[in-house]
Design a protein around this nucleic acid. Structure first.
Lengths: 123, 123
DNA sequence: CAGAATCCTCTGGGATACTG
DNA sequence: CAGTATCCCAGAGGATTCTG
């Protein structure tokens, strides 16, 4: 697989890029939020409603982590009632594109995975 | 982001392809194993040694899950001592390529993420 | 509205010992 | 060698309540 120029990364190295990215998008909600924000900016409650089932605590955690990594911006408007807009940064958009490659693989090969599972479980 | 033709997937749908793939590669070891096997087939102990820190139990779990999904083959040789070879399937290779896109993003933008974190933490 | 605070559950994963 | 069998723990994430 010549596409991979790197050796096997060290999962213990906190500075391992691959590890870091996987930790970020590997959780339950981050990718959903990224995909949602790739359309347009949303406010907190909008995200909450669009991604049914996420609790406010976890949504805050997710958004904060994305903001900290420079993938999402958080803009507070001094209005009544308060309004906070979340939007993807340019960097965030590039990540979404990379994630899209994975999503594309999923759509393309998902049936094969399902078949494999069925065959495996049938034994 | 026109690269994404799908709306936001439903994280609760067990049959959501994106969810399924993320669950698979989101764990601690799967990507490491995939990258390792993308080179050549390995036997159990070889993987164990190459990926330092993984316990036999977790390695077995990881390999079983990959086998079940049709990403890895498990070939037992009736020898003494026993020998078991694990190798990527064609499907597994295609997934590794998709993962490589993510790894590429990581290498390309990791410094920006680190800068963003430093800036965020400095506030 | 946009969270912060609190409590609780669940499970991925680690350590260790044992076996065909 | 290639696992299986147990026991254990931390931390991600869920449910709920409260507030500037």
């Amino acid at each position: 697989m010549s596409a991979l120029s790197t050796a096997v990364p060290d999962p213990y190295a906190a500075d391992c890029p691959t590890r870091s990215v996987l930790d970020r998008i590997g959780d339950r909600w981050t990718v959903l939020v990224l995909l949602l924000l790739s359309r347009r900016s949303h406010r907190f409650t909008e995200v909450s409603r669009a991604i049914a089932g996420i609790s406010p605590k976890v949504l805050t955690q997710t958004l904060r982590a994305l903001e900290r990594d420079g993938l999402v911006t958080r803009e507070v408007f001094a209005e009544v009632p308060p309004r906070v807009e979340y939007a993807l940064t340019d960097l965030g958009h590039t990540l979404v594109e990379a994630v899209a490659a994975l999503a594309a693989w999923s759509r393309e090969h998902f049936d094969e995975v399902l078949d494999a599972r069925a065959a495996y479980d049938a034994r």
